[in-house]
Amino acid sequence: MGTTFTIRLDDKSEKALRELCTATGKSRSEVVREALRHEQLRVELAAIRAELVPRAQAAGWLTDEDVFRDVS
């Protein structure tokens, strides 16, 4: 299995979690694990973006059209 982790939620967050579980048919644990994975991915993508945006700007890629022009 894994580690058991206890969190405290305010009423609004608890209601949102309950509604999300009902809407998705997932358990609270599944919803929280998925949210953690999504947040981890968001942070990783933000770090990648922070590294690549200056490189793209230095190459003159400021818009999608700039990228398409050079890649096509």
Rank of each mutant, 00 (worst) to 15 (best):
A59S: 10
Q57P: 03
E34D: 06
V67N: 05
G25H: 01
S72I: 14
W61Q: 06
P54D: 11
R69T: 10
L52R: 12
E14P: 00
A35V: 02
E44M: 10
A47L: 15
C21K: 09
H38C: 10
L45Q: 14
E34S: 04
T6V: 05
L36A: 07
E51V: 15
L17R: 08
W61H: 10
E19V: 06
A46C: 03
K12H: 09
K12T: 08
I7K: 01
H38P: 00
E39V: 01
A46R: 14
V71L: 14
P54K: 08
A35P: 02
R18A: 14
A16W: 12
R49F: 02
S72C: 11
P54W: 07
E19F: 04
L36V: 11
R18G: 04
R49H: 05
R33C: 05
A47I: 12
F68P: 00
R69E: 11
H38V: 14
D70G: 12
D10M: 00
L62R: 15
R42F: 07
S27Q: 03
D66Y: 07
F68C: 04
L17E: 08
L9R: 02
W61K: 06
S13L: 14
E39C: 02
P54V: 08
V43K: 12
Q40T: 10
Q40Y: 07
G60H: 12
Q40I: 10
K12A: 09
R8P: 00
G25C: 00
M1C: 03
R28C: 03
D66R: 07
K15F: 05
H38Y: 12
V71P: 00
V31T: 02
F5I: 07
S27I: 06
A50F: 10
G60Q: 09
E51K: 15
K26R: 08
L52N: 04
L17P: 11
T6Q: 03
R18C: 09
K26W: 04
V53Y: 00
T63L: 08
S13F: 09
A35I: 02
V43P: 00
E34I: 04
R49N: 08
R69G: 01
S29R: 06
E44K: 13
L45Y: 10
H38L: 15
F68D: 06
S29A: 06
L9E: 04
A50Y: 07
K12R: 12
A16E: 13
T22A: 10
A16L: 14
A23E: 13
G2R: 14
A58G: 12
A35G: 11
K26I: 00
V43D: 08
D11A: 11
